[in-house]
């Protein structure tokens, strides 16, 4: 994580002050510190969260802070959704540099310099997201689908209860199945599954039953999710 962010904090402090605004940088999300956090880290997703926070906290008086952070958020958001455009990286850099140098307040300047750090230090990640619509750590939602590993599921049904989208099919002693077209990828089911059976899948999709079948009866043949919505999206994206 070295070299990420805090490159420009001195500049931020210098610049701030003229604007009549009391928002400080302390509201911004912190970069990951523990190894576990780092393992589950996606720079692009973090950048999105960062700029989302910045635009929401903006006092609204300065165009770079109000619109600049919002515009950056929109662009990054598109990227995380797999809708990035070819020159987005350059556009973002340009915007963030201007916010960093002319932004009137500590908060916007800090957010911009943190984000610029992410752009510089994770160029490959950004490229993967923008051009190949993929997220290496399967953090950005568009990059993965969620399924229940049939060999792990014991049919306890805890997941059905928490799913806000009613995307899970199942019943007593049945292997539960997530309907891809309904799932919003909130991962609440993963949190309650005692077996750790809820999994993410990137480009390569494992075979799962199309409908709930009795526990233990999954053979791996037939009923794959080949025709699932995520497959369709992936094909179109490539």
């Amino acid at each position: 994580m070295s070299g990420m962010g805090n490159t420009n904090e001195v500049g931020a402090a210098n610049r701030a002050g003229k604007m009549s605004c009391d928002v400080t940088g302390s509201c911004l999300p912190e970069l990951p510190k523990t190894p576990q956090e780092i393992e589950r880290f996606c720079a692009i997703n973090f950048a999105r969260k960062l700029m989302d926070t910045a635009r929401r906290e903006s006092c609204g008086k300065c165009v770079l802070c109000r619109e600049g952070t919002w515009q950056s958020f929109e662009i990054i958001h598109d990227i995380t959704e797999g809708k990035g455009q070819n020159d987005d990286f350059e556009l973002l850099t340009e915007l963030l540099e201007q916010i960093g140098s002319d932004g009137g307040c500590e908060m916007s300047v800090k957010a911009a310099s943190l984000c610029l750090g992410l752009l510089r230090n994770y160029q490959e990640e950004w490229d993967l997201h923008i051009r190949r619509k993929r997220c290496a750590n399967l953090i950005c939602k568009a990059s993965y689908t969620v399924h229940i590993a049939p060999e792990l599921c014991d049919g306890c049904g805890k997941c059905i209860g928490v799913c806000p989208d009613h995307a899970i099919l199942g019943g007593g002693n049945l292997i539960h199945v997530i309907q891809g077209d309904r799932c919003s990828k909130c991962m609440l089911c993963a949190e309650v599954c005692p077996k750790g059976a809820v999994k993410k899948a990137g480009a390569v999709k494992p075979k799962v039953p199309a409908e709930p079948i009795p526990v233990g009866s999954f053979s791996g043949a037939g009923g794959s999710s080949e025709e699932g919505p995520s497959m369709r999206r992936r094909r179109r994206g490539e």
Binding site: M19, S20, G104
Partner: peptide, 22 residues
């Protein structure tokens, strides 16, 4: 002056870009 729109940006020798209204 509120210095918010940034349209009045100018370059001042020795200071770089500034908002002229401020």
């Amino acid at each position: 002056p509120q210095g918010g729109c940034k349209l009045c940006t100018v370059e001042v020798e020795g200071e770089g870009t500034v908002q002229s209204c401020e």
